[in-house]
Simulated assay, not measured.
Amino acid sequence: MPLAEIPLRAWRKRGQEFVFRGRTIRYWVAGQGEPLLLIHGFPTASWDWHYLWQPLAQRNLVIACDMLGFGDSAKPLNHTYCLLEQADVQQALLEHLRVEQPVHVLAHDYGDSVAQELLARHYEGRFHMASCVFLNGGLFPETHRPALVQKLLLSPLGWMIGRAFGRNALSDSFSQIFGPDTRPSESALDDFWSLINCNDGTRILHKLIAYIPQRRRLRERWVDAMQRGEVPLRVIDGEVDPISGAHMVERYHQLVPHADTVLLANIGHYPQIEAPVQVLKHYQAFRDQVGHPVLELACLR
């Protein structure tokens, strides 16, 4: 049975705001229970989670924001965007909401890197993570295969590429990274474009893309954190994603002990949009295991 979508117009009306270092951050909260932090990817926004929002809110206090430079949040032009600062944004939001319990995290793409940093901070005693699930993202720089537009944005002419980037270019890019049978509708593309273009967002795409070299610099810190094994982790991955599909999961199994992974056949880079029912099923199964570790161990004997 398909999950009900939340139209972008309705989603935007439900948003709230807080100020992070003088910049306005747009955020959403729903439900009750254990806190679950949803972290979106590049170049979109937290509306990416709209199919999962209401089902997850039935069992969790669900929290999400448009990170600095994304969606309906502030997009300052003269700013150096950094994954470490985006992790600060997440922690500031939790502090704003007075969340003190251990936090579950569900992340995608760019958000995977933010989640990796929060995991590293967990082991440093600066964040309390209960569990983490990664959707398609560049967990390892050596397996990340950037799309053409990402390579162009990283080039010296990236500022020109960003300003020339339009709705048609977005459509072309998404047609390459979504699954062959799960590409977004024209209406969904309009909504994705609205979020990217909001607040003159194309002016800063070349600045946001700096996350790719940042991943390389922070690789050892983040891989070490994933190898610790104290925080339950799972990867739910669209198999045919050319950026971070099955090849990334293969590397995950090589590097992460007792790797817990799920591959979604014929699904691309945005599984929460392309196959939300499957993502929800595998996420809830993971959380049920996390909630009953003694039962899980008994089953393994």
Score class of each variant (00 low, 15 high):
Met1Ala: 15
Pro2Phe: 03
Ala4Ile: 03
Glu5Gln: 13
Glu5Ile: 04
Ile6Gln: 07
Ile6Cys: 06
Ala10Ser: 13
Arg12Leu: 15
Gly15Arg: 10
Gly15Cys: 03
Gln16Tyr: 04
Val19Pro: 02
Arg21Glu: 15
Gly22Lys: 12
Tyr27Ala: 03
Tyr27Ser: 00
Trp28Val: 04
Val29Leu: 00
Gly33Tyr: 01
Glu34Asn: 13
Glu34Met: 08
Pro35Met: 07
Leu37Phe: 10
Ile39Asp: 00
Ile39Glu: 02
Ser46Ile: 05
Asp48His: 00
Trp53Tyr: 04
Gln54Lys: 14
Asn60Ser: 11
Val62Leu: 04
Ala64Asn: 09
Cys65Pro: 00
Asp66His: 04
Leu68Ile: 07
Phe70Asp: 05
Gly71Arg: 01
Ala74Tyr: 12
Ala74Leu: 01
Leu77His: 14
Thr80His: 15
Cys82Tyr: 06
Gln86Arg: 12
Gln86Cys: 10
Ala87Leu: 13
Asp88Asn: 14
Ala92Ser: 14
Leu94Met: 13
Leu97Tyr: 14
Pro102His: 03
Pro102Phe: 05
Val103His: 00
Val105Phe: 11
Asp109Phe: 04
Asp109Tyr: 04
Gly111Ile: 07
Glu117Ile: 15
Glu117Gly: 04
Leu118Thr: 06
Ala120Asn: 08
Gly125Ala: 02
Arg126Cys: 02
Val133Ser: 06
Phe134Lys: 09
Leu135Tyr: 02
Asn136Thr: 05
Glu142Gly: 06
Thr143Asp: 12
Val149Glu: 02
Gln150Leu: 07
Leu153Lys: 11
Leu157Thr: 08
Gly162Met: 09
Phe165Pro: 06
Gly166Phe: 09
Ile177Val: 15
Phe178Gln: 06
Gly179Trp: 01
Asp181Pro: 02
Ser185Cys: 14
Ser187Phe: 09
Ala188Ser: 13
Ala188Trp: 14
Leu189Pro: 13
Asp190Thr: 12
Asp191Met: 09
Trp193His: 01
Ser194Leu: 15
Leu195Gln: 15
Ile196Gly: 02
Asn197Trp: 14
Asn199Cys: 07
Asn199Gln: 15
Thr202Lys: 13
Leu205Ala: 03
His206Arg: 05
Leu208Gln: 14
Ile209Asp: 11
Ile209Thr: 00
Tyr211Ser: 09
Tyr211Met: 05
Pro213Asp: 08
Arg215Tyr: 00
Arg215Ile: 01
Arg216Phe: 00
Arg217Gly: 12
Arg219Asn: 08
Trp222Glu: 10
Ala225Ile: 06
Arg228Lys: 15
Gly229Glu: 04
Gly229Trp: 07
Val235Phe: 13
Ile236Arg: 00
Ile236Glu: 03
Asp237His: 12
Gly238Arg: 07
Val240Asn: 12
Pro242Trp: 08
Pro242Cys: 11
Ile243Asn: 09
Gly245Arg: 08
His247Gly: 09
His247Asn: 11
Val249Gly: 05
Glu250Asn: 12
His253Leu: 09
His253Met: 06
Gln254Leu: 13
Leu255Ala: 08
His258Gly: 05
Val262Tyr: 08
Leu263Pro: 03
Leu263Met: 15
Leu263Tyr: 05
Leu264Ala: 13
Leu264Tyr: 05
Leu264Lys: 00
Ala265Val: 08
Asn266Cys: 02
Gly268Cys: 06
His269Ala: 09
His269Ile: 04
Pro271Val: 02
Ala275Pro: 00
Ala275His: 05
Gln284Trp: 11
Ala285Cys: 10
Phe286Ala: 03
Arg287Ala: 01
Val290Met: 00
Gly291Asn: 14
His292Trp: 07
Leu297Asp: 10
Ala298His: 14
Ala298Asp: 14
Leu300Lys: 07
Leu300Ile: 08
Leu300Ala: 06
